[in-house]
Write a protein that binds this DNA or RNA. Sequence first.
DNA 1: GTTCTGCTGGTCATGTTGTCCAGTGAAAAC
DNA 2: GTTTTCACTGGACAACATGACCAGCAGAAC
Lengths: 158, 158
Amino acid sequence: MGIDRLDGRLLELLAEEPRIGVLEASRRLGVARGTAQSRLDRLKSGGVIRGFGPDVDPAALGYPVTAFATLEIRQGQGPGVRAHLAGVPEVLELHTTTGSGDMLCRLVARSNADLQRVIDRVVGIDGIVRASTAIVMENPVPLRIVPLVRQAAGEGLP
Amino acid sequence: MGIDRLDGRLLELLAEEPRIGVLEASRRLGVARGTAQSRLDRLKSGGVIRGFGPDVDPAALGYPVTAFATLEIRQGQGPGVRAHLAGVPEVLELHTTTGSGDMLCRLVARSNADLQRVIDRVVGIDGIVRASTAIVMENPVPLRIVPLVRQAAGEGLP
DNA sequence: GTTCTGCTGGTCATGTTGTCCAGTGAAAAC
DNA sequence: GTTTTCACTGGACAACATGACCAGCAGAAC
């Protein structure tokens, strides 16, 4: 579904100050509350907004180390590996990607030493042929959506 | 900061049904509202909960293609490249990683064809020596936090 | 010209929030 | 062993936000 400038501004507002709620958002956007309400409903039912889950910081939970692991999978072992990785709490995210049947996963750990334990657990299944890990040092651009929303909303400008 | 089982269950509840609010959460947890309130305040001020931003689906915005690009950076060009990538809306996330001064970024695009445009824009700066891209096909484990929360909360069990 | 569609500005009952408070129990400090 | 400290309970309160309405109005589409 496409979004217009009003949707875009609403999303920006909610992204920057999630606490404000529909009423305050409508005030800031200069529209009636019903309008903001129906726009928000449309964004939710249209799947643009999946939800308002809490944004949890793994570092504050005691897992300050993040890493990305690229996994090479043996032919046909994909499903087993997926299930295995889904069972590891430190695997925050898993993608299958183009290339030689590869997967990319995001890991966290309590320390660099602990990362070894996590990796051992990750690769502790037969289907994985090879794993290469890159430890994250800095995160100059944390996961963000506003610039994309702005671009999506501003296409078809006058 | 550490979290105990009550914090953990509170986080789980909020992660699974963000709409419920403090009052309903306290009811389900079987504790007084004040308790849930103060736990939530502590989690927020302790940085465990960064916020409650809307979870926006890039696909629903018209960007169904996700890719990860590994970038090799020329010595000393890091800051310039960071700034360049921060200016590209389709770059949702950027990490600097161990390895030969590399970076890893998450990209989205309108189509596989459009991805070419995005990549051209990403690598359209001098500091990048080489880029290799992996297109995401499936996402068996979407970004998740509950299993980790459960583990963090359950350490020191009786 | 008529029909749609979306926005406005308004109402209403209901539920939630933030912020208090005094009382209680249990663990920690002395 | 006694005192202090702390977190939780259960209750209260005013202020506010929410979801659900509605009639009226404007511009766009037909």
